[in-house]
Write a protein that binds this DNA or RNA. Structure first.
Lengths: 342, 342
DNA sequence: CTGTTAGCGCTTTCAT
DNA sequence: ATGAAAGCGCTAACAG
């Protein structure tokens, strides 16, 4: 059986219809629609009346063509389903709201070939600006893109493009995380690292080292373990650590996701958090307030980053210059860390 | 100080340039670019050569205008940062990949005014099709939209539009969740409900009742408590329940988020999961495998739903008819549920 | 202040 | 099979 699917053909009403009905020229209609140059009050009203009467909506496709703009901002993100990126996306949404521009998301999955395809999609779609959320596209390529299109890089430094990079103070955040543990009396502090050549991981390592150094503790390589910023990798890394039987009383995971994984192994091995092991994470992902116990962590201002990236790209498009701040982090003390006791 | 920001002016090369270089007419170029009608081999090659030489990319904005299509699919979603919707979005991404269409996300936040604005944005942007992810827009309005634009509704039934609705088997899933608990010997099973007039909540209630009835248990109103599908609401509801001192050994939360909230209160009150209380959720959000203990739940095929919604909308746009399946759920037994023991 | 005139870059009849 | 011509709906000089 064939189902007939009636789709009302909506008749297109154009600027000419309005012009005719209002007794003016199309240009005048355009002028009042866009508020570009003054128009006599009586004509303006006539136009507005006609617009209302015919429920006229300018054809964006036509506007885009003639203006040579797509009114879209390309967002090269890495993961469209993660809570972390999700919050950044929300910030971007917010920042673009009422600007007339809309976000066009393409995802790279931290995977160069995909990212390149995604970037290609963006240029094909002729976006008016690009916000890149970190990723693995080589600096050189990023610079090339930035040379032809307004671009903001969020969460990563690109050499020679520092003024268009929006980043958090990783070192400070990581330093504070480690200090928090130190202040609680912990000495044997595991560092659960993220992807090694990743900028965030590098900087956070620095913060950890600085804090340890200031506490006159030397860094035990046995306490440094590697993950990939994923739950799974955190779980695996800590599992191996436990098998090696090295003593520690606290752990700093370079992000909350890995902390979740770590927390699960500890649970499975009968180690209690925080009674036996204290854990601090990084990011303050939305879930972290509801884990058991709620996770102490360093807040990554994701929403703020998205918001600022959006505002900045709009300025760049307008030809204005931007001054991007180094976004601050914040220690959020919850229940996964306690004072060290024998 | 004013920073000069040099933006290379990329010179636009058009179909005419190609035509000239290939010694053919623009129409012919268009024909080979779009493979619409046969073109003599030698001319085709000349065109292709010119395209390659000049690195020509058709101007999508112009194509859109003349074709009267935006090549965008509007996605009216409720939350751009939630892992639940996130997975659906991923499915949509996937389904739209290589179709030439791209998703245009607008968010409604389960808030009618916002949803209406979002919908307006979509029509203003002249999307070629719409995927609505549930939400609170009245059925009547949805039908109106569907009358003028290809539309798929995911996660909700709309009367008279059933063929365009993609939904899961809520009753069965909920029935199985309850049966799971019943089979483990639980009798006093709390039902942590979601928003009352929400279709999913209504259907899941039905599944619970059916299972209880078949087990010859009558439903104790004291065991039915209300949440809003959020972590916070789950926490509050269970807190109140605990204060009322009614006995129960298991709980079925209508979604995982509420289960997280519930789990946290229990933790705070010193009640162990699963030793004292068994919990089963619904959705199988990405986090659920990493809570402590990992959460037993009913899998909601989010990715699949997104994928199918995308494929369906593409067919609808092509004028084809679609037959949407009732998506199955699946019981995922993890560690938050155990056999009841005195 | 406002109408006329050209297109934006592409697709698509319509002839040939 | 292919070129010429006519727009898609709108904006933006350019005169007046």
């Amino acid at each position: 059986m064939i189902i007939i699917f009636p789709m009302q053909k909506k008749e297109i009403i154009t600027i000419h219809d309005i012009a005719r009905k209002a007794g003016v020229s199309p240009s005048t209609v355009s002028r009042v629609m866009n508020n570009t140059v003054p128009v006599a009050d009586n004509k303006r009203e006539a136009v507005l009346a006609a617009v209302a009467a015919l429920n006229y909506r300018p054809n964006i496709l036509a506007q885009n063509l003639v203006r040579g703009r797509s009114m879209a901002i390309g967002i090269l993100t890495q993961n469209i389903a993660s809570p972390f990126y999700g919050e950044i996306h929300q910030g971007i949404e917010q920042g673009l709201k009422d600007s007339g521009y809309h976000p066009l998301f393409v995802v790279g999955n931290w995977h160069l070939p995909e990212e390149l395809v995604a970037l290609e999609t963006l240029t094909m779609r002729q976006v008016d600006g690009i916000i890149m959320l970190a990723g693995t596209i080589p600096d050189e390529r990023v610079r090339q893109v930035a040379a032809t299109t307004p671009l903001i890089m969020a969460g990563r430094w690109v050499k020679g493009l520092e003024q268009q990079c929006l980043q958090i103070d990783n070192i400070k955040g990581s330093y504070e995380a480690t200090c928090h543990l130190l202040q609680l009396g912990h000495r044997r502090i595991v560092l659960l690292q993220g992807v090694l050549n990743h900028g965030d991981a590098v900087e956070r390592r620095l913060g950890y080292e600085q804090a340890m150094r200031e506490a006159n503790l030397e860094i035990d390589p046995q306490l440094i373990i590697d993950g990939q910023f994923t739950r799974q990798s955190g779980l695996l890394a800590v599992e191996q650590l436990l098998n090696r039987n090295v003593f520690f009383s606290a752990m700093f995971a370079m992000n909350d996701e890995m902390a979740y994984g770590a927390r699960l192994v500890l649970y499975r091995r009968g180690l209690r958090v925080p009674e036996d092991i204290s854990i601090i994470g990084f990011d303050d992902t939305v879930q972290s307030a509801y884990t058991t116990p709620p996770l102490t962590t360093i807040r990554y201002p994701m929403f703020e980053m998205g918001l600022q990236a959006a505002q900045a790209i709009l300025k760049l498009i307008q030809g204005e210059t931007v001054i991007l701040p180094l976004l601050p982090t914040q220690l959020i003390v919850r229940e996964s860390t306690v004072r060290y006791h024998q």
